[in-house]
Amino acid sequence: MLAIVGAFLSLLGSAFFVLAAIGLLRMPDALNRMQAGTKATTLGSILFLLGIGLMRPDFLGRIIILILFIVLTNPVSSNALARAAHAWRDRIGLKMTPDALAEAEAEAAALASSTAEAASAKPTSEVQHDA
């Protein structure tokens, strides 16, 4: 009984893996691909591994560690990737209608260059985010 429940849980998990892969293929740019890739693989691996744990209860200890590890690290790696994608936003053609982060960076750059001009006579060229 437990084995059948576990097998169907694994099947549900692998369905989320397939969703993540379709999302990776269909979404138009890197940040949107990340939306599908991160979330669906997290829940997919939780369900897939829990299903295996139900089929073999003696695996359950290590599987819980693996699940905790994936839930804790997956957002971190996707955050690092999102920052990298945002730094490259002009080259890779990200389309975002409000981009509050780019506005904040532009403001900081303007402030830095105006204070630099005030400090020294010769104007400094802006080399803020050269993608």
Binding site: A20, L49, A85, I92
Partner: peptide, 20 residues
Amino acid sequence: VDRTVALDAMTIIATSLIVA
């Protein structure tokens, strides 16, 4: 960046497959 996003997803799927 796109390749690394795909690699991130592939790592997790491969980890699950090793457990399987």
